[in-house]
Write a protein that binds this DNA or RNA. Structure first.
Lengths: 339, 339
DNA sequence: ATGAAAGCGCTAACAT
DNA sequence: ATGTTAGCGCTTTCAT
């Protein structure tokens, strides 16, 4: 056995050793001002000696809520969520809370399971990027007293908070940049249309052409990848480039896709941006590091997380106003070499 | 007010509504076999109707430990830890536990603060990548009943578990590959020597030459970057390549560094791997996606996490043996185009 | 300024 | 098979 005695000492032991009542020990902990200086010193001394550590579970049981907030993301391993998580964590820390992080892997059953576990834990609230937006069960949880904030997902109802990034605007920024550079034949290598972000970005691209007085139908054509991966992008481009009427610029739904595009272009001996311009989306860490650095759309991921946590915290605060805010953040164009 | 009634209903309300005692309700929850089928059905029915959610805090208070494990990493936003965290999370989920994730940012005070908060929460255990290995306070925590597992860090004492990756072997693999390819003048672009991983990898590289019957002093020379970043690597290489006696291969302490190397080589018009071979370390996601895909050393990050969590769980299990295992994982050479 | 006592919601031992 | 009861460790009235 490595550990000596089984049970940790609590305020009871401290009280006994210091020769005071547990109430006084509790006061030293929570209302030090009310305790006589001498007594306080003695009690603190004993706490030291006994290696006293407050039992948070007991405390929170009484308090009615845990010092923890839950976050459900699609996958921790995705850089987008990782930065966001960091923002959440930092904001929570300021409120003395910690972050319980859960990956749903887009599986509704995993999502439901985690949601339930978190509710049982009495978390301060839950930040969730929903897999398939089951707003009813989220609403039910919220009514049971668990504040909910939708993460990277605009809320479909005024009753639930949300933070999101304006994907329409992101698509517009990317397209507008290309238009400004004189491109009149742009290909948008998009992801599957059932993903909300993809359709929004496409809409944005259309808007950009319209605002420039150009007919999208003439100048913009879209190819939807079944899955937004490097390999798929490379393969699809292989075929597309064999056709006549090549685009002068390619707009990609993600940097990962842009990577496949750049590879494919290089194979064909086409130079970026001289022969074909490329714009990515996400500004992942390696975007700036590629042989030809990538022009792309940056999303305020860290701030998204901070804002979400702030919303959660105020929502969880009974003294605060009860409006359910819905925040939208703006993406930003990062111009580098590729376009 | 959005939420209707303040207090969630607990087993008391369920018992009253179902016309049974709270003991029976508890039995339905924890020992369903012992309850008469009819009663059980009725109770479950009532739970449904009342939207009963077990109070985990109360349960765990009684049980003595939370359904959560803590993990302290240097930075969630680092892909290495992100993958590891995923492994931890998945393993914990199998045991019905959740993961509280904390970034220390290498700051000892943040580390200490989180450690303390986690202990208060009564977590099942803590996985920690220490900032400056304060083994004493970790040991003290463990003696107080909180299982500790060192993450990506070999344990200096037999009393504490650890999981780590063999960096000596990693360095050896990289160097041996270059040697096998005929390289006899290898440059090792390393990180700062005060980082344990860097010195270990350097040692490994030396070993490789010795095993090949070659004198490291003759064939291997090392340049230490003050910080292992792309820009630094690029700058340093700029100077180094101006000197005579250029290496035929460059071994890098990380893929990030390798990126800077590749960039610099491209600027000078040198072809990889024909003019100079390059080996990275880490196998970050973009390694395979570069213009010239990167030969590198892969680390079993996900498995590292799983193993660490398993160690924690068995360590936390009072019925298990009390040996403190120290696991070392093996890195793997991934051969691609760059070498 | 300090002490005594109630109870947060649950589980498990014991009684029926 | 079901009910009763004693805590888990803490905070907080309410007395003193």
């Amino acid at each position: 056995m490595t550990t000596g005695d089984r049970r940790r000492n609590g305020i009871r032991e401290v009280a006994a050793t210091a020769g005071v009542s547990i109430g006084t020990v509790s006061n030293v902990l929570n209302h030090p001002g009310v305790v006589a200086a001498g007594t306080r010193a003695r009690v603190e001394q004993v706490m030291q000696e006994l290696g006293f550590v407050r039992n948070g579970m007991a405390r929170q049981l009484r308090e009615g809520r845990a010092a923890t907030a839950g976050t459900l993301v699609l996958d921790i391993a995705n850089p987008f969520f990782t930065e966001t998580a960091r923002g959440i964590e930092d904001r929570l820390a300021e409120a003395g809370c910690m972050l319980t992080l859960c990956s749903t892997d887009q599986q509704p059953d995993r999502e439901a399971r985690y949601l339930h576990m978190l509710e049982e834990q009495g978390v301060r609230g839950i930040l969730v990027t929903p897999t398939r937006l089951d707003i009813e069960s989220l609403l039910a949880m919220q009514r049971r007293g668990v504040p909910i904030v939708l993460l990277d997902c605009p809320s479909p109802t005024a009753e639930i908070c949300s933070v999101a990034i304006d994907d329409i605007r992101g698509g517009e920024l990317a397209a507008a940049h290309l238009i400004a550079r004189g491109h009149r034949r742009v290909m948008f290598l998009n992801g599957p249309p059932h993903v909300q972000q993809c359709t929004a970005r496409s809409r944005g691209a259309h808007n950009a052409f319209q605002k420039a007085g150009l007919d999208p139908a003439q100048h913009l054509f879209e190819v939807a990848l079944p899955r937004a991966s490097t390999d798929r992008a490379e393969a699809v481009l292989e075929q597309t480039l064999a056709l006549p009427d090549q685009p002068t610029a390619i707009m990609c739904v993600s940097d990962i896709v842009a990577l496949g595009v750049m590879r494919s272009l290089r194979k064909r001996g086409l130079k970026v941006p001289d022969d074909i311009a490329v714009v990515g989306y996400d500004d992942v860490p390696f975007a700036a590091e590629l042989a030809t650095s990538l022009t792309t759309i940056r999303q305020p991921t860290y701030d998204l997380g901070r804002a979400a946590a702030t919303l959660l915290l105020t929502d969880a605060d009974p003294t605060a106003s009860d409006g359910h805010q819905q925040l939208t953040y703006q993406p930003e164009l990062i111009v580098r070499e590729s376009a």
